[in-house]
Measured scan of single mutants.
Amino acid sequence: MAEQVALSRTQVCGILREELFQGDAFHQSDTHIFIIMGASGDLAKKKIYPTIWWLFRDGLLPENTFIVGYARSRLTVADIRKQSEPFFKATPEEKLKLEDFFARNSYVAGQYDDAASYQRLNSHMNALHLGSQANRLFYLALPPTVYEAVTKNIHESCMSQIGWNRIIVEKPFGRDLQSSDRLSNHISSLFREDQIYRIDHYLGKEMVQNLMVLRFANRIFGPIWNRDNIACVILTFKEPFGTEGRGGYFDEFGIIRDVMQNHLLQMLCLVAMEKPASTNSDDVRDEKVKVLKCISEVQANNVVLGQYVGNPDGEGEATKGYLDDPTVPRGSTTATFAAVVLYVENERWDGVPFILRCGKALNERKAEVRLQFHDVAGDIFHQQCKRNELVIRVQPNEAVYTKMMTKKPGMFFNPEESELDLTYGNRYKNVKLPDAYERLILDVFCGSQMHFVRSDELREAWRIFTPLLHQIELEKPKPIPYIYGSRGPTEADELMKRVGFQYEGTYKWVNP
């Protein structure tokens, strides 16, 4: 592979701008107003304001973009700056750019259920340069409990009458099928589907988006991507930290609602779906819905739930269990780990287990898709061969690698495990991989909904998990304890083995 010439960040961002501006969906010269509902909250200060700053800094926003914060707290732009700027990672050389960014910011205080507050917000936006005809993007960085009041008031008082209007809704989209349907029906009564952007930030990850290209742009994968060759698929999300004093919020939802029903299920769809007619948003989402419709409700015998306990040999936070978090209700049975087996009941995947695993306070930070292939028929190497695996590593250190057998150097035919490896950090030294939120917010500006969740996708996802969630809430089974920093409950490994996964433990990928 030829040595790549190092590029400056300015040059890299210039390439990104060229890609972005050559499309006809990006209205570079139009006025846009980006409204952050819930501007005083954690999500706004840690993710949304920093993301908008990065896009502005790199010249990736339309030229005439204004940012308006809205929340109940009586704040000023200076207050917003004070709480969000520490997350910007701005350099001293960017000081003038930073001043320009905050000059485009404003803030309006108001209630979430008060019509007069929204009329005041609308008047404020109209007073901005060309504000009355601007395109408006409303980001709901809010708890779902206020979605209905907020969307109703936005629709009645704050819509642009000339430009387009788009609304970005953060997960969780309800707690179960019934609450999700209620919320979807409410929002759909106010906005068209092409105006609604239900954001799952995992769909903005580079390697998640790469799944489609790997599958449908490489001839070698087509013939082997089926039940005849693939023994099982494992989708993993692991965090090495616990709730760390923020367990009160987590306890309301648990690990299945927080990660599995959305992030992991979306990745499953991209692995299992048929080739779409095109890369058009609805063509892709149509195929994802077909996959979900082929999955039956989760069966309790295919589920393992766990909850982390303190590690007596650990240090600091590792010595504390979930129930030691003062914000967690006493005696909570909320799971911090889950392993679930699903089956896609169609011709391509009949009988292939899709194993979804996620948890907190585990032994490493990792998100990946792992396809394990069947054993080689007619073994001539005296059971020395391990199964081939194709691994798409989402985070950290984005990579695609194939675990395969090669001859060990020497005189004899002794096979050993090795890999074919594409590590993004080595291959793409001159490429700026956008943060997931950067990519998705740019998608909203461009009107691309491919990486957002459609209402029928959402409904099918909740259909699969709601009976299990209701059973857990009714019966309150005690989750299996696992030690902070471990791989999780051993019962999860036993479940995976029972459905056909072979864990060798003899080879570990190392970032080159």
Rank of each mutant, 00 (worst) to 15 (best):
L7D: 10
R9C: 12
Q11W: 12
Q11M: 06
I15E: 13
I15P: 07
Q22P: 12
A25H: 15
Q28L: 13
H32P: 08
I33R: 07
S40M: 02
G41D: 02
A44S: 04
K45R: 14
K45L: 13
K46F: 03
K47W: 06
I48W: 03
W54C: 13
F56N: 04
D58F: 14
L60Q: 08
P62F: 05
V68L: 12
A71P: 01
A71M: 03
R74D: 15
R74I: 15
A78R: 05
D79W: 03
Q83R: 12
E93H: 14
E93A: 13
E94K: 05
K97E: 13
F102R: 05
A103S: 07
A103C: 14
A103L: 08
S106E: 11
Y107D: 00
A109D: 08
D113Y: 14
A116Q: 14
S117Y: 12
S117N: 12
Y118D: 02
Y118I: 07
N122I: 08
N122Q: 14
S123Q: 12
M125P: 02
S132N: 12
Q133D: 14
A134G: 11
R136V: 11
L137V: 13
F138N: 01
Y139P: 01
A141H: 00
P143H: 05
P144F: 03
P144R: 00
V146Q: 13
Y147I: 03
V150D: 00
T151M: 12
E156H: 13
S160G: 14
G163L: 06
G163Y: 10
N165E: 09
V169G: 02
E170Q: 00
K171A: 02
K171M: 00
F173K: 04
L183P: 01
S184D: 09
I187Q: 08
Q195R: 03
H201S: 05
H201C: 00
H201I: 01
L203H: 02
G204Q: 02
E206A: 04
E206S: 07
V208P: 05
I220L: 13
I224V: 06
W225E: 03
W225I: 09
R227T: 10
D228A: 10
N229M: 06
I234N: 12
T236Q: 13
T236S: 12
P240F: 11
E244T: 05
E244S: 11
G245V: 05
E252D: 13
G254Q: 05
I255L: 10
I255W: 03
